[in-house]
Design a protein around this nucleic acid. Structure first.
Lengths: 361, 361
DNA sequence: CTGTTAGCGCATTCAA
DNA sequence: TTGAATGCGCTAACAG
């Protein structure tokens, strides 16, 4: 049986290669199917299936022959049909508020990377913090029969979210935990981050350390403040509630809050910032007011987005292990999908890492 | 028929709710199916199908009744089964080199946004510029039977890529064009960008305009240089090939190239930069060498990543309409999927926009 | 080692 | 306006 024969057989099998249809229409209307391969190879569909999935015992001869035919016909099995038969789709859902935010794009990279090596494809879904959109994407992902779901953000209350996630074979939350439901969780230890940042400044001899704490609604922000207070309290260092000031989580927010706080409290020699953008705002205010960083004011922020190393002076910051967050979320999800109870831990906590740069050496 | 009845019927229909299985196992092993709804509603599966898809004429009464049952049973149709039957999956593939790169995360946002409003889900696939990985994800997407594909980067040669894309119902390339194949393309007019950037500097009176051109292998870079040369040539302004210098497309590359170029050519009063990161490198060199920006050296770069507005001085740059690139790629792809020949244009060209900031007012 | 039978859950014929 | 039969392409559970 030679190549010519194979090809001739395809056109016969697929039938309607009569005249003026394009190759694209040909592909769409009549893709090569497992039955085609089986017929052409002179075996049953089962044998072809076994070859494809490396299942069961197959004689090396027929395996080789089938593989050759698959190659000749350029056969690509349908994951859709397989999914219907097996009830597993090798497909996952990833829900993020905004993929343009480096925080989430790094998580997405981790998720997709691990998914790739494990043979899964991932649906990317953005919510933009919109409730309706979140409900819509969850519904859509359920209908697509994903094997698992990772959600990085939800505006839903615990009960609603929990019941929704229960409809998926497995689910993992990033930076949120539902104690009442059977979902995994991966999060950053923000209290440790707050402690590490504060300790770094205390060890440098600072005794007036302020904190631009970000939005009052930010849970992560509250926890970081807790670490800050604990560290201050444990050391023999002054503490003043007025040194804490909330701000919008962006450059403008940092500028506004810094102007006020630094004017009101000239005794401050160091400042913690909710995130790197806030720190950039502080940097700009310092430049305007002739304050030298770090000599007149040391700055430590959180996150370590790419920007942090590029501004002048570069920012000392607590790096959130975003990529690893994605990886670990996937590990946990896969363990749950495959029912590896031993790795089923409800919660994985990742430690931030302090990156010392010029703003607080 | 009341709620209690419905619920009772579910447990009956799904059968094996015998004892110690969790609700999750229940969901997985026996999801509510269309047949369940049909039986419970006392109609045929066809009727349920018609209600779900709003197809055909249905009496308002039965439609309402069926919808009620669907709601009671919490039925969610299987997109997998539907895909097998219809050969359309409402699913797309998006291939990018790296989702962490703001250039691609913005494109992804545009793609996903448009996909969402049109009822599609998108598989996110990263290649990291790796050939094997690219081949693998294309294979995987084909098996998943996506309705269309958008690729933002490929290391494959034209012929290989073209043949691969031909295996998809529809395909669109971003910033690349295959004239020999039936694929759509969306790209940025980089030559216009080069012209606009140069003109901006000439109009400010500069007569010594250099260009850090980026990697020699960058097609976009070459085209921008073409626009630069054309503009210089058309004006009564000196031109010196030595004023062009390639560099790595990052901060370090900008630093190195700027140090050399500025030392060799003190006559330069303005510099074009391959991208914003390169410009940041130039900014750092200027700070080191006591050069004032823009007084001693004006700088114009390309892309307008978030960083561009945050450094000091902020960067005048040619904004690449990345989000719109994603939107337009989707528009083109959908037109091709739906065979809307009128919008089937092979190529869509988007204009960059000059964002004037402090580095070159 | 290989083949046969019987679905997976839906939509597309047709017919009623 | 509704329903019955059939098949999409594959795998599971048996048989041989």
């Amino acid at each position: 049986m030679n190549l010519t024969n194979h090809v001739a057989c395809v056109t016969f099998v697929t039938g309607n290669v009569t005249g003026n249809i394009t190759s694209k229409e040909y592909l769409m209307s009549d893709r090569v199917t497992m039955a085609d391969v089986a017929r052409e190879a002179g075996v049953s569909k089962m044998t072809v299936s076994r070859v494809i999935n490396n299942k069961g015992e197959i004689s090396p001869a027929t395996r080789k022959h089938v593989l050759a035919v698959i190659d000749q016909l350029n056969y690509h099995p349908s994951a859709i049909a397989r999914g219907l038969a097996t009830k597993r789709t090798a497909t996952l859902g990833l829900v993020v508020p905004d993929i343009s935010n480096p925080f989430f794009s790094d998580i997405a990279r981790g998720v997709e990377d691990k998914a790739y090596t494990e043979g899964y494809n991932v649906f990317l879904c953005s919510t933009y913090e919109d409730l309706h959109r979140e409900l819509a994407v969850l519904k859509s992902l359920e209908e697509k029969r994903v094997d698992g779901l990772i959600s990085c953000s939800s505006r839903l209350d615990d009960e609603t979210l929990g019941e929704l996630l229960d409809r998926f074979p497995a689910a993992v939350l990033v930076n949120r935990w539902l104690s009442e439901y059977d979902v995994g969780a991966v999060r950053i230890d923000n209290e440790a981050g707050g402690r590490m940042a504060t300790e770094h400044l205390l060890q440098a001899g600072h005794r007036g350390v302020g904190f631009l704490t970000g939005p009052a609604t930010s849970y992560a922000g509250q926890i970081r403040v807790r670490g800050y207070r604990a560290t201050i309290g444990a050391a023999d260092v002054p503490y003043n509630p007025a040194w804490e000031r909330p701000c919008s989580p962006n450059v403008e927010g940092g500028r506004e809050a810094a102007r006020g706080l630094l004017a009101d409290h000239p005794e401050l020699t160091a400042l913690l910032c909710y995130n790197d953008l806030v720190a950039v705002g502080v940097l700009q205010v310092c430049a305007d007011e002739g304050r030298r960083v770090p000599d007149d004011l040391a700055i430590v922020s959180f996150d370590d987005i790419p920007l942090a190393s590029l501004v002048v002076p570069s920012l000392t910051t607590l790096r959130a292990p975003r990529f690893d967050l994605g990886i670990q979320a996937m590990r946990l999800l896969l363990a749950r999908i495959d029912d590896h109870a031993e790795e089923w831990s409800q919660e994985i906590i990742l430690q931030p890492e302090i990156i010392v740069r010029a703003s607080a050496p």
